Simulated assay, not measured.
Amino acid sequence: MSESPRTPEAHTPEAPGPEASGPGRAKGEPRFPDGPAPDPAGSHFERRIRSFQPRRSRVTTGQADALQRLWPLWGLDIDGQRVLDLDELFDGRKRVVMEIGFGMGEATAQMAADDPDTGILAVDVHTPGQGNLLGLAERNGLTNVRVANGDAIILLREMLPAASLDGLRVYFPDPWPKKRHHKRRLIQPEFLSLAKVPLKPGALVHCATDWEPYAEQMLEVLTEHPDYENTQADGGYAPRPAFRPLTRFEGQGLDKGHVVHDLLFLRAQHAPQSPPVTAAD
Rank of each mutant, 00 (worst) to 15 (best):
P226A: 12
K183E: 06
R146T: 11
Q188F: 00
A208F: 08
L165M: 09
S193A: 14
L204D: 01
A203K: 02
T143Q: 08
A208W: 06
P161I: 12
Q217H: 14
H181T: 15
E220V: 00
V205N: 00
E190M: 05
A152V: 14
G141L: 15
V197K: 04
R157Q: 14
S164Q: 13
Q232I: 12
F191G: 00
V170H: 01
L186S: 01
M159R: 13
P177S: 11
A195N: 01
R185E: 05
L133N: 10
V145C: 12
H225M: 01
K200A: 01
R169Y: 08
M159I: 13
D210R: 05
R185I: 12
P189V: 03
L156P: 04
H182C: 07
L222F: 13
C207L: 12
N230C: 15
L156F: 07
R157N: 14
E220L: 10
P213H: 07
Q188C: 05
N230A: 10
K179S: 09
A163R: 10
L142V: 12
E190F: 14
P226F: 08
A163K: 08
E158F: 01
F172V: 01
N144I: 08
L222I: 04
D227K: 00
L155F: 10
E224W: 03
M218H: 01
W211H: 15
R146Q: 10
E138R: 10
K200N: 02
